[in-house]
Design a protein around this nucleic acid. Structure first.
Lengths: 115, 115
DNA sequence: CCCATAGTTCGGGAAATTGGAACTATTGAT
DNA sequence: ATCAATAGTTCCAATTTCCCGAACTATGGG
């Protein structure tokens, strides 16, 4: 198992961030990690919404988020802890992550209201 | 040739916008349409940067932007005029498009500075 | 040492992207 | 009206990417 790759702040690209967050599942995972400074394990997301995500897919999703520069993953014993890199990303792309998370948040509220 | 489909404002989704703009070529096209003049033909983008884009691909790119709700395309005689829907999108996802365009803009400036 | 847990990697089928060639629609010229 | 030119679209095949089950790896505990 090769060590996890994390891009340096300089290597983070807008297209990577947009691609990573253009998938609603990844956006939901990231929103969760980003909220309240959180630290989350991968398996905390065995389901997103009411959809069950196979762990091989989850692993890929975390990899995409990591390589986009949105999260940092560290092994702690048997599990992986994921923290957001919002702070760093904000210095490079001001307002970007916040606007994206906010857009998805508005979307979720709409869905709820129209039940 | 079936008529062009434009989603109503209500049907515009964050994932569609992010996906559309996660491609640097589409982002460049959209940035151009969104800036000042706002009316552009497809063939004005035969090349983006120094890359030549085949017209079948260009047509697809415009379709993706259109179906994401980012642009409106109307036929005027033999050509297509594309206008941005930034204003509408802004009411639904405040700050989103601006933050994305700004992120790409910063990126372009960096690339220039590091020559 | 063996088992359980947490993730990663592999591999094949499904879906999306790309771009050349053929097609369609509109205008202008003969 | 016919023909040619221009601007885009559609078709299709090759490539790429995505998804998820199965097999694998790493770590900690009994």
């Amino acid at each position: 198992m090769r060590p996890l790759f994390h891009p340096s702040l300089d290597d983070i690209r807008p297209e990577g961030i947009l691609h990573a967050l253009s998938d609603p599942v990844r956006a939901a995972i990231f929103a969760d990690i980003a909220s309240i400074g959180c630290v989350e394990t991968c398996s905390a997301f065995a389901s997103v919404g009411n959809r069950i995500i196979p762990k091989s897919s989850l692993s890929q999703h975390f990899k995409v988020l990591r390589e986009a520069g949105l999260i940092r993953s560290e092994r702690h014993g048997v599990e992986m802890r994921n923290t957001s890199r919002c702070g760093e990303v904000e210095t490079r792309f001001p307002g970007l992550v916040a606007a994206i998370l906010n857009a998805y948040l508005g979307e979720a509220k709409r869905a709820e209201a129209s039940l």
